[in-house]
Amino acid sequence: MQCYLGVDIGSVSSNFVLLDQLGRLHTKIYLRTEGNPVNAIKEGYARIKDSLSDNITLKGVGSTGSGRNLAEVLLGADVVKNEITAHAVAASHKYSDVKTIIEIGGQDSKIIILKDGIVNDFAMNTVCAAGTGSFLDQQASRLNIAIENFGTRAVKSRQPVRIAGRCGVFAESDMIHKQQMGYPVEDIIMGLCEALVRNYLNNVGKGKKIEEPIVFQGGVAANTGLKKAFEKILNASINVPENYEVMGAIGAAILAREHIEQNKTTTSFKGEKFILDGDFKTSSFECKGCPNLCEVVQIKRDAQPLAYWGDRCKKWETSLDSQCRLKIV
């Protein structure tokens, strides 16, 4: 069987999927990045490899997420795409008529508006990370609730309390206040969910026409409390796809398939020996070439430098290969 690997290296989680040629999900792996994307890529790939049976060949690799360039260097991706395109592709693959995608991840939240299956408009959070996975994680641990149970606890609420959604810090102090007043935890966390939805709609979704069908994906879609809050406030039904947490990786895999099939090329995947046997080290140094003093990041496999990035003049980025390559850092 021929498969495509999709990799989504995010701030909080790193996801890996294998899709077959018809776009069916074969394997998915969801890992915590834990601030070490290099390890996450290695471990993720090792786990993917364990699930590979002998008759599977890797036809292509796609990477996305904030660590997409790193994934490209380590794996040899055929396609390196931003998260917005990847999420849109994955959602419209599953729901061909989707018009609105709500995607909330570890640090980013996005809204994507589609028209006839292609992205027509999008927005990302700019100033406030309230409502993203990291904030929910933090609040759950403060209330001593496992993040997995956050949603199920929230939907038990009968009377959500009102919490300010303008800003994460205000939301937190409001929550503490309501807690000290003696409100039940369920009502507080459901109130938080509603506040975060209002925050999302005001900050990210402002000025956008949210039309059905709506798809809610990203790690935070696991939170049934938020789904319920979205349904209540938008007065619409919300679809959460089965593989909501790895949709970015699915999108990357689909894009890799498109790329390979359209261009009739073979994959630039570097092979499992390259990833599993090598010792990857990242280091940074200050380039003293001009007063800019750019912080240049270097990635080495054993003693061999693989990539540089971070310099404004591209002196380092282009030092390894003469052909023009796009690096987005």
Partner: peptide, 22 residues
């Protein structure tokens, strides 16, 4: 961190490109 800026620009360009292709 310029990552956020460039992600948005890239996504915008991608969107335009797909519109043109369509």
């Amino acid at each position: 961190g310029t990552g956020g800026i460039y992600t948005r620009l890239e996504a915008f360009m991608d969107m335009l490109q797909r519109r043109v292709m369509e």
